[in-house]
C-alpha cells in the first residue's frame, strides 16, 4: 500500500485553520464560554510541510567499540536495556560480516522510517502511522499492544513495553502494553533543534558517522551527501524506500 503524502496547504487542513488566526480567533467551546487563545498561537508550530527527515550513517567511521548513539537515545527517551530479552531497544549496534571475505562492519540500526512502512500496513488500529514529514510513529493513545507491527518490521526496530513505567521523560511518554521504537527525536525536530540525540552524541565523540537532515531539501547537507556519494538502504530488495541510508557497508 502506498501511503499518500498530502501536501500541506493543498486543502484547508485542521492545522491551517488553527494557523489562520483570523479564522478562529475566538472559539466557542461551550455555551457562553469562549477560548480566545487558539487563533494565531499555533503559527510556525507543527511539522515542516514537504520535509522527509532522514539519517545518513557512514559505517566506515563507526568503530565497533563505540555505542555513544545507543546511550544517548536511552537517556533522551528514558528506556533502559539491561540485557533482558524483554528490554526495549530503540537503537542497537549491529555487526555485519561478509561471508566470503570475513570483512566486518559495525553500525547502528534503528527504525528506518520506511516510506512504505509494513508496520503501518498491518496495524489494526491505525496507531502505527507515518507523519507527513516521513517520521513513522506509534500513537500510544490508540495502540492496543497487539505487536503485529513488531512481526511486520523487517528490521526488528520495535519493542513492546513489558513493565509499568514511571518517571518518564516528559518529552517522550512511554508505557506498559504499548509498542515503541525510534521516533527520530520528534520532540527535538518539532522544537527546531535540527538534530537527534544519537547524531549529537556521535558528533561529540568526533567520529562523525551520522548525519541528520531533510532529504527533500536539495540544499541540506544530507541531500547533497546522498546525491554525491554512494549510499545504500538495508534490505533494498524490499523496496520500502527507507529514510535511513548507510555508506561503506
Amino acid at each position: 500500500m502506498i501511503i499518500p503524502t498530502k501536501e500541506k496547504g493543498a486543502d484547508i487542513s485542521r492545522r491551517d485553520l488553527l494557523k489562520s488566526g483570523g479564522a478562529m480567533a475566538t472559539v466557542t467551546l461551550a455555551s457562553g464560554v469562549t477560548l480566545m487563545s487558539f487563533g494565531g498561537k499555533a503559527a510556525a508550530d507543527g511539522l515542516k510541510p514537504g520535509a522527509r527527515w532522514g539519517l545518513l550513517i557512514d559505517a566506515g567511521k563507526c568503530p565497533e567499540d563505540c555505542s555513544a548513539c545507543v546511550s544517548a537515545c536511552s537517556k533522551e527517551h528514558g528506556w533502559e536495556d539491561n540485557g533482558l530479552d524483554t528490554d526495549p531497544q530503540w537503537i542497537r549496534k549491529v555487526t555485519l560480516r561478509e561471508k566470503e571475505t570475513g570483512r566486518e562492519n559495525s553500525l547502528p540500526v534503528m527504525c528506518q522510517h520506511c516510506d512504505e512502512p509494513p508496520c503501518v500496513d498491518v496495524c489494526p488500529t491505525g496507531a502505527s502511522f507515518k507523519r507527513e514529514d516521513g517520521i513513522v510513529l506509534v500513537n500510544r493513545h490508540t495502540c492496543i499492544g497487539c505487536r503485529y507491527c513488531m512481526m511486520a518490521c523487517p528490521f526488528k526496530a520495535r519493542s513492546f513495553v513489558h513493565e509499568p513505567v514511571t518517571d518518564q521523560r516528559t518529552d517522550s511518554p512511554r508505557g506498559n502494553g504499548t509498542v515503541e521504537g525510534c521516533n527520530m527525536c520528534v520532540h527535538k525536530i518539532d522544537r527546531g533543534d535540527g538534530t537527534t540525540a544519537c547524531v549529537e552524541a556521535c558528533q561529540a565523540t568526533g567520529n562523525n558517522a551520522m548525519m541528520f537532515g531533510d532529504l527533500n531539501d536539495p540544499e541540506s547537507d544530507i541531500a547533497i551527501a546522498v546525491s554525491t556519494y554512494a549510499s545504500v538502504e538495508l534490505r533494498a530488495d524490499l523496496g520500502l524506500n527507507l529514510g535511513v541510508r548507510y555508506q561503506n557497508i
Binding site: R15, L18, R131, D133, H141, I189, D190, R191
Partner: peptide
C-alpha cells in the same frame, strides 16, 4: 486534552492548550 493530543502526535503542533506536561 484528547483534541490537543492529536494536534501534537499527528501534526507536531506543540503549542497547545491541553498539554499534560
Amino acid at each position: 486534552l484528547s483534541h490537543d493530543r492529536d494536534l501534537t502526535v499527528l501534526d507536531g503542533i506543540r503549542d497547545i492548550d491541553g498539554s499534560i506536561k
